[in-house]
Nucleic acid binder design. Sequence first.
DNA 1: GTCTATAACCGGATAGAC
DNA 2: GTCTATCCGGTTATAGAC
Lengths: 234, 234
Amino acid sequence: MAEPDPPATEPVGKGERTKQRIVAAALELFREHGYEATTMRMVAEAAGVSLGNAYYYFASKDLLLQAFYREVHEAHVAAARAPLAAAKTLHDRLLAVMQCKLAVIEPYHRFSALMFRSAADPASPLNPFHPDGADIAAEGAALFAEALAGSNTKVPKDLAAELPGLLWTYSLGIVLYWIHDRTPQRQGTAKLIERTVAMVTTAVKLASNPLLRPFRKQIVALMQELRPTPAARD
Amino acid sequence: MAEPDPPATEPVGKGERTKQRIVAAALELFREHGYEATTMRMVAEAAGVSLGNAYYYFASKDLLLQAFYREVHEAHVAAARAPLAAAKTLHDRLLAVMQCKLAVIEPYHRFSALMFRSAADPASPLNPFHPDGADIAAEGAALFAEALAGSNTKVPKDLAAELPGLLWTYSLGIVLYWIHDRTPQRQGTAKLIERTVAMVTTAVKLASNPLLRPFRKQIVALMQELRPTPAARD
DNA sequence: GTCTATAACCGGATAGAC
DNA sequence: GTCTATCCGGTTATAGAC
């Protein structure tokens, strides 16, 4: 305990290890007891630090969730890799991405409800529309861009620029439904994904039809208008 | 104070008045300080009751929000009456309903953020998908049904049954955007309403087109499938 | 049995010493 | 960077008043 203990394989900053311990303890406890039932005191104890020290690293309980959020996203990207490589049609590729999402988040169903509660708060960095979460949003859209790019379905150029973002928003809606889904094995959400992916595919194919051009233009114009999100204060 | 005080004009139960006072005090404080900054102790004091007494009537702070929720809905219905009577086209009628909504909720913008935070929690009775709130959902849909009924736009029969509910969901989405809207006078949301109402109107008109029949059927089938919401436990 | 009040409890968050 | 000691506010237990 008294040795200097030089940094061997870990060139990380001083308390970086402590931070990791706290995150690990929190995720473990969240998984086991859910978000609400896990107190900061429990996290601190499990991580072997004091309550105040835990707050030194994470200014709020919500902030601990951000770590979770990122972990889930990375797991989703990883899980989707193989199915995406196998699926060729747009329908199958979208279905693969959504089904992977569902599989990845399932273990957290209980505690995701509370996570979402925080995510809906505009002041929370967990909120999908919050600037701090912009990178996660962009990465989420990127996954859908990949799903689109690998398919043989033709997408009108104007829509192609907006579609990944639209699909990411769609996936948030599915997650919202999933949170409230109390059917066994989340069958309701599974069904919903099947149905809506089919609808999305139909819609994308219809989008090339000249009849729908005005409608498509409306959507694209709206999306472009919404993009910049000037972060004026209240 | 010692008189029996027979019920003159108020046949209300004993503590009904107290309850009213608490709600009134809470709404006032919410409007002024926002939800989070308003403590139950403040509410109790403003209502002239003890903290414990406030909890006797409202088991949680969230429950006070339910009262607010209903008040807002009734104000919305009232505010929409005149504009609805004046507007003839579907576009104008939807726009009227949405603009009234926006006007009615504007004074609560600051505290609605927190309200939504609660509303997103599946366990909260504020949640739009929660059975306890089913009546509010139904009334919300009814308002859109009225907007549809009074217009001269033709809606395919299968879709007509689902459209009010769809439009109510749409309005929830607009509110979600509004909560995050930091533009002056909520211009962003106003613009969004204009744009999306135009799109919705376009979509409803297109829905009669034979080309879109399969897509329409998909939507209707999905809506019907989602309806029963069996409330199985986790 | 209906209502009201006081005194805790608990957990998120903070202040300030070391 | 880490701790201890508090604060603060939602919530609950419980005792009594009408």
